[in-house]
Amino acid sequence: MKIKMPRWFYQLASPKWFYDITGMLLPWFGLAAILLLLVGSIWGLVFAPADYQQGNSFRIIYIHVPSSILAQSCYMMMAIAGAVGLIWKMKIAHVVAGACAPIGASIAVMSLATGAVWGKPTWGAWWVWDARLTAMLVLLFLYIGVIALNSAFENKASSDKATAILSLVGLVNIPIIKYSVEWWNTLHQPATFTVTEKPAMPPEMWIPLLVMVLGFYCFFAVVLMIRARIEVLEREKRSDWVKKVIENYGR
C-alpha cells in the first residue's frame, strides 16, 4: 500500500534540499533561542513574584517544566521520525531520529536533576520512588538504550530499523509519564499547563514560563539541525554536492 503525500513531503526526503533549507533556518532559530531564553530566565529569576508557599525555590519551574516538556516531545519526535523512516523508507527521517537521541537524553538529565534540586527544599528529599519520577527515569534509560543500539550496528540500515522499533515500543512510556500524577498517589504536583483550562498561576508567573518553553524548543531545533546536517553529509559523502560542501568549508 502506498499513501500519497504532498510534494513537500518528498522534497524533505532529498538530502540536499534538507541540508540547504536547514542551513537557512539555523541562524533564525539560534537568534530566537538566545532571545527567548535570555528574556524568559531574567523574567523568571528577577521579575516573577515569589510563590506564597514555596518562596523563591519556585523559580526552578522555569527550567524544570520546559526541560520535562522538551524531553518528552523530543522522544515523540524521535519515535515518529523512526516510524516515518520505516514506512516510507525515508533516510532523512532516520537521520533526524538519530540526532534526537543524544539531545533528548541530556534534556531528560536536566529535568531529573533540576527536579531533584527542587525536591530537596520542597519535599525534603532529593529523590523519591514516585510514579512520575520513576517514569521520567525510564525515559532517560530509553534514550540511553536508543543511543547504545544506534552505535551497536556496522550497517546503517539495520541500526536505523532497530532504533526506530525500540523508540516506537518505548512510546508507551509517554502517556504513563503524563497520567502518572492522576493514576497513582504521588508527591509530584499535577500539570502546570493544560490545553483546556486556564493556568492556575497568575500571568506574571506563567508568561515567562511559556517564553522559556518556546526558547527550549528553539534551542532543541538548533542542536537537532546541526547534528542532523552532519549526519546527512556523513551518509552522502560519496555524492558530488557533499564533496563541494567539504571543499568550500573553511574558505
Binding site: S41, L45, G55, N56, S57, V117, W118
Partner: peptide
C-alpha cells in the same frame, strides 16, 4: 533567593 539561593542557582547552573 530568600533562603533558597543554593537550590535556585544550582538548577540554573545545571
Amino acid at each position: 533567593m530568600g533562603t533558597h539561593g543554593l537550590y535556585v542557582w544550582l538548577s540554573y547552573g545545571i
